[in-house]
């Protein structure tokens, strides 16, 4: 086994980004599998972006491969864009008729709230934003 990566500081933002992805993944699974909230279509697309971040960043961290951040970035951008769009649908800025959720669970449903008032799409947007900021911080600290 090799020693610690030479740039110790480079690991910290990546580690935090991985933690955010881990917590968001556990939270999404809790909402879906334990609380029985059926994910709407947009939720599923955000899950598709969030779940692999745990593995991509996790494997990179575990092996001290900072390039994993490069592979995480497109996933984070995709998830962030979807979360922003979902928030706009949820708050009614974009009309629901234009949203892709005509069947199943509505993406603008008030059901999509945690503790009664925090919209799930907003949580997702916050998590993806934090991951993006941390990935950029990681890039600057390595430059």
């Amino acid at each position: 086994m090799t020693a610690e990566s030479p740039q110790r500081s480079a690991g910290t933002p990546l580690f935090l980004a991985w933690l955010v992805a881990l917590a968001a993944t556990a939270g999404a699974l809790f909402l879906g599998e334990v609380m029985g909230k059926t994910p709407c279509v947009l939720c599923w697309y955000q899950r598709i972006a969030m779940f692999p971040l745990v593995l991509v960043l996790g494997v990179g961290l575990f092996d001290g491969d900072a390039r994993s951040a490069r592979y995480a970035l497109p996933l984070a951008w995709a998830g962030w864009s979807l979360a922003l769009y979902h928030c706009l649908v949820f708050w009614g800025v974009i009309s629901e008729a234009l949203s892709p959720c005509r069947q199943g669970v509505s993406c603008a449903d008030a059901e999509l709230q945690v503790a009664g008032f925090v919209p799930i799409p907003l949580l997702s947007l916050v998590a993806f934003s934090a991951i993006l900021v941390l990935l950029f911080w990681n890039r600057r600290s390595r430059a």
Binding site: E4, G11, F15, W18, L19, L22, A26, G58, G64
Partner: peptide, 15 residues
Amino acid sequence: RRGLMVGAVGVVALA
């Protein structure tokens, strides 16, 4: 770092 990661996974799983 690896120990921290395993610990973090453990904490999240326990939570």
